[in-house]
Measured scan of single mutants.
Amino acid sequence: EIHIRTNGEEQARKVYKMLAKRNYDVKIEQHNGQWVVTAS
């Protein structure tokens, strides 16, 4: 499982799309105001 911390919604969405293209199961979560993308 991969966790990627991003500094904002826009970046989180870019990372989300990139990983989704590679057939990862991707989730975006917010932790303490930080956007974290989780891929498995």
Rank of each mutant, 00 (worst) to 15 (best):
A20S: 09
H3V: 15
S40V: 11
E29K: 08
E10H: 08
E10R: 13
R5P: 05
N23V: 04
N32T: 04
I2G: 02
H3C: 15
H3Q: 12
R5K: 09
L19E: 00
R5S: 07
V36F: 12
E9G: 04
V37E: 00
W35S: 00
Q34W: 14
A20M: 13
R22M: 14
I4M: 04
N23Q: 08
R22S: 06
E29I: 11
N32V: 04
D25R: 13
G8Q: 11
H31W: 13
T6Y: 10
D25A: 11
L19N: 00
H31T: 09
E9I: 14
D25P: 05
N32R: 06
Y24W: 12
R22P: 01
H31P: 02
M18N: 05
T6V: 15
A39H: 05
G8V: 12
A20I: 13
A12N: 00
K21Y: 08
E29W: 14
I28L: 07
S40Q: 08
L19P: 00
G33L: 04
H3W: 13
I4T: 02
V26P: 05
N32W: 05
I4P: 01
A20R: 13
A12R: 01
V26I: 05
L19S: 00
M18T: 05
K14L: 11
V37N: 01
N7S: 11
N7A: 11
Q11F: 12
E29R: 08
D25S: 11
E1K: 14
E1F: 15
I4F: 13
A12W: 03
T6F: 15
R22Y: 12
A20W: 07
A39R: 04
T6Q: 03
V36M: 08
V37I: 09
A12D: 01
R22E: 06
I4S: 02
V15M: 08
G8K: 12
H3T: 15
A39E: 02
E29N: 08
V36Y: 13
N7E: 09
V37K: 01
A39L: 14
A12K: 01
Q34R: 08
H31K: 12
R13Q: 07
Q30K: 10
K27L: 05
R5G: 03
I28R: 01
I4H: 03
G8W: 12
V36I: 13
G8E: 12
